[in-house]
Design a protein around this nucleic acid. Structure first.
Lengths: 184, 184
DNA sequence: ACCTGAACACCGTTCAAGT
DNA sequence: ACCTGAACACCGTTCAAGT
């Protein structure tokens, strides 16, 4: 990549990080281009879709989340591991409103730039879920897509200002339907 | 109201019903004005906000839902009554995507045209919930706002195409966390 | 190769001008 | 009293023209 192109690419990304965090996944692309001091065409050249831009920004975190799902867990029982992972995801998406809506749209769209991230996140969750189910600590009639859907719904709840003051409680209610916590 | 104004009012409403059902609560107001064959100013004169237009369209159904929450129930136990009512709401909002998102935004906004509808829907749910709780058939640590939030989240899930095939199952999972169904 | 910014087709909202 | 539609300030997306 040419030096000027590289500079623009990095600048767009840096600005997009801030703007997406502030305005959510539906933030104005024009606004990003403006703040990055590049033309609209430059933004589109580097990131042909909104998803492509989101993907680069989110990839790192989602890879970390997928990795943490498979981490040794240090003696942590599978139900606690699943719960901790769910809390991690929600804490992250809470900083980026609407991101899980974009993910939900991408999971059925193989051509979306976000598709691979969705699938790996869903799979990571499915593996944690399966281990908890095997230990008799999670509702057995749930699949990976169900967990993904419930995560998305919880993220949506956290994004609604009217529900924010009850969001932690609702998290407990919903995860309570998934995980049957026990002492051993 | 003058005869021409009345005609425009009715025409806008008739068109809006169709367009909101087809495109959801975020449908283009310009599109509605166009299809109703009125100027934008006419639409705004009769309905100063999107919420005002939505409110007129939804009021009838929400009043019916609030009424059905208080219906004698014909020997139906409170847990079954609550579940049946939840199914009714979800079935309705499923035909009008995004409506519960608008409701969620309006519940904390007393100036919104939708506010009264939100509150009465929340209250109706809260009464059903309280009866089920009194019978020991619903999770006791839930308030009206929690039920409203869970309804909204379920409506959101039904609106996501990627989750549609699991939506009925997710409804069972989430309501399972609220209602503890028993035989007597 | 890469960049710019105008152009196009859309929004929501307001308001001067008409009847 | 009511209506119209242009005007304004925004979008996302594309593309001719420049370097």
């Amino acid at each position: 990549m040419r030096a000027d192109a590289r500079k623009n690419y990095d600048q767009i990304l840096a600005v997009a990080r801030e703007v997406f965090a502030a305005d959510g996944a539906e933030a104005s692309l024009r606004d990003i281009a403006r703040k990055a001091e590049v033309g609209m065409g430059t933004l589109y050249r580097h990131f042909p879709t909104r998803e492509a831009l989101l993907e680069v920004i989110l990839r790192e975190r989602f890879e970390a989340l997928a990795a943490s799902a498979d981490a040794p867990a240090d003696g942590q029982p599978p139900d606690a591991a699943l719960l901790a992972w769910l809390r991690e995801i929600i804490a992250f998406t809470h900083q980026h409103s609407g991101v899980l809506g974009a993910m939900a749209a991408a999971i059925d769209a193989p051509e979306s730039a976000l598709h691979a991230s969705c699938v790996s996140l869903k799979s990571a969750g499915a593996r944690l879920l399966a281990r908890a189910q095997a230990a008799g600590k999670a509702r057995p009639d749930l699949e990976g897509i169900d967990l993904f859907a419930l995560i998305s719904a919880m993220a949506w709840l956290y994004d609604q200002p009217a529900f924010a003051h009850r969001a932690d409680h609702l998290f407990a209610v919903i995860t309570g339907a998934v995980v049957k916590q026990g002492k051993a």
